[in-house]
Structure formats: structure tokens, C-alpha cells
Design a protein around this nucleic acid. Structure first.
Lengths: 187, 187
DNA sequence: GAAACATTTTTAATATATTGAACACAGTTA
DNA sequence: TAACTGTGTTCAATATATTAAAAATGTTTC
């Protein structure tokens, strides 16, 4: 009924990571707590390892679990141009805030790019995003006050702020001129 | 030697996803190809499932594999400020290109942010990055020519380009003035 | 109430993931 | 040559993940 989705070859990934870090099977075995016999069989693709063991291996390699689960990946080499005229823009409910959604629709699902323009005194109130979401905020011009939960700070042009935004957060323009912000949201 | 990293409770995640989609064990069993007995034991945390079975379950639930691997997650809510004065800057070998590394060191490993400034006529040649790497390029000001492999395009202020950079790529400033580029690199 | 059904849990048997030890294969060193 | 490393691979034994079928637990219907 359903076509086979995609079987990942975790063995290749483990072997690659291990060779990059120049570790022997013995070393990785002691570092991860998985027998070197297992490691050998996993790398040669003779077994379907348990998530628990893969977890231990990922820890032993000190890499994210997902790294070892990489599928074949996209073959096509993308080169997508998104012209200024085609970029969707919108004005926040609170007047004085202009938002450009830079991310093309075809883009990766877990990353979004925005360019924000604040008129003097303008404020943007954002509802909590999905849990685990992080925002990377760069002030290109002006001066703004950012608050998320109990945290709050004032940023000038050139400053960068990283914060989790799975909580209500606010951005307020303190400059007498327009403030511009580059915003990267990762889910 | 090494402190326990974090054991994820995948059972909870599977049960949650299944209840959200209002599926019975039988339905998910036929949809995923995993016996309902397995599903029951996985949800009650009595077994350490194989990655292969978890993969099938993820497909049956039509969710990303990672979704079912959600650990307890980071408790601490980050709010890291990186002041302009603290941001590391460097000049490329080719004169006329100034690079600001916006990403704080404490930042996620799979994401990097750069702010590039090109003097008139300046060019930046980049060696291939790690396979699968993608760059999200936003032209803040000026006019540049970007080429990656056989692809090439000219971008003006406000344009956005998404391309894979696991290949040699070049950025050249065509404007008579300085060009500024915001660059997001994801691994 | 019980009969009929849907859903989840447990049971017993099988398949296989995991392990420690033995093995094979290099590259030193003497 | 042999002895001694370090490397990765197979071997038999054990632990356990996985399954089909049965038992248990609701949930509806008459």
C-alpha cells in the first residue's frame, strides 16, 4: 500500500564520524559502553541496532542523535533565487512594524528568515512559538529592547541575541529613527 | 567516567502522537507494519525498540523520525547576548572583504551566522563546506554576483538566495559602493 | 443483565541484537 | 624468525526485541 519511505544507512554514518574523530573501535567502545563487536557489525550493516545503543554511540561520539540518522539526503543541488519583488511582506497588527518573509516556500521546514523594520516607538508582540524554537536576532540598525519571559535587554546596531521563543516575547524600537532587525527562527 | 547523558522516553512520544491522530494500535500496526503487540510494549516502555521499527512507526505516523526521539529537552531557557564589541571579525585573504561571525560560541553547532561587507570590486572565494551544507544569503545593500558550481546569478539589495555550498562558490561585489550580505549557514 | 464488538494487554515462541572471547591481519621491535 | 603491539572481524552463548494468538479490559447495543 505505502511505498517504502527511505531506509537510512546508519552504519556509514557511524563509520564516517568515527574516522573523522580518529577513534578505534576499542576507544569508541569504552567511550560509549557498546561492545566493539556490536560497533563492527553496525558499521558493516549486519544488524539493526537498538535506539538505546545508537543513543549511547551518539554520546560516545559526542554528536547529536540525528547526525547518525542522516538519510541519503537530497541529490539535487539547489540554487533558489527569491527576488525582492517576490518576497511576501506583511504589517503587524501593531502599526509601525513591517515584516519581510525572506524564506522561500520551498525552503527547509525547520528554518525561517525575516527582515523586520520598526518605525520609532513601534512594538511587536509575539505569541509563544512551538516548544524548542529558538530565535537568532541581529540588530542591523537602530536600538531595540527585547524581552522574553523574565529576561530583558537593550540592543544596539551590531548586537546579536539568541533566545528561546517558546514563550511570549516583545521587541520594541527605542531609536528615534527606523530600526532594522534580521531574524532567524529555528524549530 | 562519563555522566549519563539523557535517556529519551520514546514510548510517551509514540503514545502522544498516536492519540493526537486518533489511531488505534491496530490501525497504526497496519499503517506501519509493526505488530500491535510491539507498539503496546513500546508505549509502556517495556522494550528498547530497534531503529528500524522506530523508523517504520515514524513513517506510519507520518512524522519526522526526530519527533519521536524528543528527549526531556533543555530546561534552561537561553537568553545569550553577544555585543558588537565582543563579536569576532576577520578579513578574508582577498582584500576588501570583511567578515563578522555573529554566532556566539555557545550556539547550536549546526547553524552559523555571518555579516559580510564587500568593498567595491572585492571577491570572496569559499572552499566546499561539509556535504549537505546550505547557505541562505540575503543582500542587505549593494549588488553582488554569486556562483556555485555551474549556477550563477546577480542579486540586488533585498534579494535572497538559497543554495548548497558543499561545492566551491564565489561572491563578488558588482556595486560601486559597499555591499552588505547577511549569511546563514546550516549544516 | 449478556452478547457483540473494539481496543489494549499479556503470553509463549521465534527471531535477532548484543556480548566476551577467540580469531585474523597488519605494523613494529628485537 | 618470533613476540608484541594495535587494528578490525567472526564465533558461540546469552539477552531481548518482535511476533501471532490468546486473554483481559473496556464500550456499545439489545
Amino acid at each position: 500500500m505505502s511505498k517504502i519511505p527511505k531506509p537510512p544507512s546508519i552504519g556509514k554514518n557511524v563509520k564516517h564520524e568515527r574516522s573523522v574523530q580518529k577513534l578505534s573501535l576499542d576507544e569508541l567502545s569504552t567511550a560509549s559502553g557498546v561492545s566493539k563487536a556490536m560497533l563492527s557489525q553496525i558499521e558493516s550493516g549486519k544488524v539493526n541496532p537498538t535506539v538505546a545503543t545508537m543513543w549511547k554511540i551518539a554520546h560516545g561520539l559526542s554528536v547529536e542523535f540525528n547526525v547518525l540518522m542522516k538519510g541519503e539526503g537530497k541529490k539535487i543541488r539547489r540554487f533558489d533565487i527569491n527576488r525582492k519583488a517576490d518576497i511576501t511582506t506583511l504589517d503587524a497588527d501593531a502599526a509601525g512594524v513591517h515584516i519581510s518573509v525572506l524564506s522561500p516556500v520551498s525552503m527547509a521546514e525547520d528554518l525561517e528568515l525575516y527582515l523586520l523594520t520598526f518605525k520609532p516607538g513601534a512594538t511587536l508582540n509575539s505569541q509563544p512559538h512551538y516548544p524548542g524554537t529558538e530565535e537568532f536576532l541581529t540588530v542591523l540598525a537602530g536600538k531595540v529592547k527585547v524581552s522574553a519571559g523574565e529576561n530583558e535587554t537593550i540592543l544596539n546596531a551590531g548586537d546579536v541575541l539568541v533566545y528561546q521563543c517558546d514563550i511570549e516575547h516583545h521587541i520594541e524600537n527605542l531609536a528615534a529613527t527606523e530600526s532594522r532587525i534580521y531574524l532567524v527562527v529555528r524549530f
